[in-house]
């Protein structure tokens, strides 16, 4: 199913500040507000591939929650797929979020061990009122797109390896042909060889669906394969943004410079394998 040229805005955050209330003192009589994101602005157009790069504590998880409609920011505007998502009452937000494909970080926590893979992947289609056979078709197509064999549909998550679980999650995220794909550390839990497979897979999918793809990661090297533009988060603030290649070549902010340097492992040049050149 084609989508008319997605030049619409997928996500826009304008000067968003968000945080959490933390219970303080005995019996949580008082609650302190801890700000995690400060004045963050982000814009993702339809069909764009953007990376949000941040390490632990940078606020990237909070950013995801804000985009998913799970955490109302204290300040700022949030527009997701054309809707001001926080103007919609919580119970109705699914009408927007169901157009998003979200792949969470930990596959062990994202798959219901009591459901078969087929049911897991079919779930996002439940509100679409499609005839049974069309649902089945889509599920099978999704499984093929993630390069898994159909037989996996009958298994329970316990039978799957880490890489397979990740693919099932991706299949679930794309079965309803989302306009926006949100990936939370899609390769962090994977082995190097599986990581490469998943990276190639994700790019293939994004090309086919022509959806906007936002990858949240701490790994700059992986990000360069999954995004054209990047936003670097540090302690809740955007310290740099722009085309990823630019940032890598010429980092402007202090943090970005340190980050880029640590990937080339600084000091002595590591021997570069012959096949690289």
């Amino acid at each position: 199913m084609s989508r008319a040229g997605s030049t619409d805005l997928a996500v826009e955050l304008r000067e968003v500040s968000a945080g959490y209330f933390v219970a303080e003192g005995l019996k949580a009589l008082r609650r302190k507000y801890v700000e995690v994101l400060r004045g963050v602005s982000l814009r993702v157009d339809g069909g764009e591939r953007v990376a949000v790069i941040g390490e632990s504590g940078s606020g990237k998880t909070t950013l995801l929650k804000v985009v998913l409609g799970l955490l109302q920011p204290m300040r700022g505007d949030v527009v997701v797929l054309g809707h001001r998502i926080y103007d919609i009452p919580e119970r109705e937000r699914w009408k927007v979020t169901r157009r998003i494909g979200y792949v969470p970080q930990d596959p062990f926590r994202a798959l219901n061990p009591r459901l078969k893979v087929a049911d897991i992947i079919t779930e996002p289609l439940s509100r679409l009122h499609l005839p049974e056979d069309e649902k089945e078709e889509r599920v099978r197509a999704a499984v093929k797109m993630v390069q898994l064999h159909e037989s996996v549909l009958n298994h329970y998550p316990s039978r799957l390896s880490g890489g397979m679980m990740q693919r099932v999650l991706i299949a679930r995220a794309v079965v309803h042909e989302p306009e926006l794909l949100l990936l939370d550390e899609p390769t962090s839990a994977l082995d190097v060889s599986t990581q490469a497979q998943v990276i190639n897979l994700l790019n293939g999918i994004q090309e086919r669906l022509k959806c906007a793809m936002v990858t949240v990661t701490h790994d700059l090297a992986v990000a360069q394969y999954l995004a054209d533009r990047a936003v670097i988060l540090y302690k809740g603030v955007v310290v740099e943004e722009g085309p990823l290649d630019e940032i890598v070549r010429n980092p402007k902010s202090e943090h970005a410079r340190v980050l880029v340097a640590s990937y080339t492992l600084g000091v002595s040049n590591p021997p570069i394998p012959a096949s690289f050149v």
Binding site: L68, W94, D106, R109, A110, S126
Partner: peptide, 13 residues
């Protein structure tokens, strides 16, 4: 708190 519950709710279940 599991992500599969979150995913279900996001999908509108």
């Amino acid at each position: 708190e599991m992500e599969y519950v979150l995913l279900a709710r996001l999908a509108g279940v």
